[in-house]
């Protein structure tokens, strides 16, 4: 038997309105859990994209002491004139200071206390062979040289980024799964509450011959509506995360290692579709359990 769309929408709207506070709590929980779930995917995509860039041109940075002598500096420069090195660039103290200012543009108190003289100049090096082990070995050759303060290879930094990203995304995933379970239970509770508050109507519907599906559909739509509104909120949050946070990190010139930390449109939209699918599954489980347990003929 066909159910009138007007009837279904009216009944669904009434159910949502009748349990407004509970519906609102459910929508927020679904929204936050889906946002975290989507965030887990976006962070992973962004890290994959960032590290993919480094895989094609692993480089390392030789940080010199600010007071390194001209002779020490010349020694390093001579060593870099080698077939093992594809190219290198010298970043002097003024340029380092400019990067520093840009990096901490939002916190003037940081760069106001720093002067170019105390910042280390550096060599940004691109080896001929991008193999991580070769790069690591090359980097180590400079580590103990006079005038060298530190050598940071990109693969080490990437590993750090990956480890931190793994930890962040793990937290996102765990919290989102817990919240999704809570959201499913909230939908179930909400639908059960709506069923109980409409007990007389349901009794009449059964007596006059309404089919089980006719009775069930408005309650299932209620769960679906909550999930969809929550998913919409989560999508807006993800859009913000992608366009402002992830894109901002990826675009920052000062954060050299973060360049490429971005999510493509197709990755963003596939994550959105996945989020929508999760919302449908969560609402489906919550409302189906409720209607099958509490609406038996």
């Amino acid at each position: 038997m066909a159910i009138s769309p007007i009837y279904a929408l009216r009944e669904t709207g009434q159910n949502l309105w009748r349990n407004f506070m509970l519906s609102f709590a459910t929508i927020i929980t679904i929204g936050v859990s889906l946002w975290l779930f989507g965030g887990f995917f976006l962070v992973n995509y962004a890290v994959d994209n960032a590290t993919a860039r480094w895989e094609g041109g692993i480089e390392f940075v030789i940080w010199m002491n600010p007071d390194a002598s001209a002779e020490q500096d010349a020694n390093i420069r001579n060593s870099l004139e080698s077939p093992a090195i594809s190219s290198f660039a010298y970043v002097d103290q003024d340029a380092t200071y400019a990067e520093f200012v840009e990096l901490f543009a939002d916190t003037p108190e940081m760069y106001e206390v720093v002067t170019p003289e105390i910042l280390p100049p550096s060599y940004r090096v691109i080896p001929t062979n991008p193999d991580a082990d070769v790069v690591q070995e090359l980097a180590l050759q400079f580590a103990d040289r006079p005038g060298v303060r530190d050598v940071v290879s990109a693969d080490e930094t990437i590993r750090q980024i990956q480890n931190q990203a793994d930890e962040i995304s793990r937290v996102f995933l765990i919290v989102s799964i817990i919240l999704l379970i809570a959201a499913t239970l909230l939908i179930l509770t909400n639908v059960v509450s709506a069923i109980r508050s409409r007990g007389s109507e349901i009794e009449i519907m059964k007596v006059v011959g309404a089919t089980n599906w006719f009775i069930r559909i408005p309650f299932m739509l209620e769960g679906l509506a909550q999930a969809m509104i929550g998913a919409l909120g989560a999508w807006v949050g993800l859009f913000f995360l992608n366009n402002n946070v992830i894109a901002g990190l990826g675009d920052g010139d000062a954060l050299e290692l973060m360049r490429g930390f971005r999510v493509s449109d197709s990755e963003f939209y596939s994550t959105s579709v996945l989020m929508l699918g999760i919302a449908v599954i969560v609402s489906g489980i919550g409302s189906m359990v409720a209607v099958t347990r509490y609406l038996d003929t």
Binding site: M1, A2, I3, S4, Y7, E201, I204, M205, V208, G209, A210, F214, I215
Partner: peptide, 8 residues
Amino acid sequence: AFALEVIG
């Protein structure tokens, strides 16, 4: 009307 509405 409810009795008719719910049987479509």
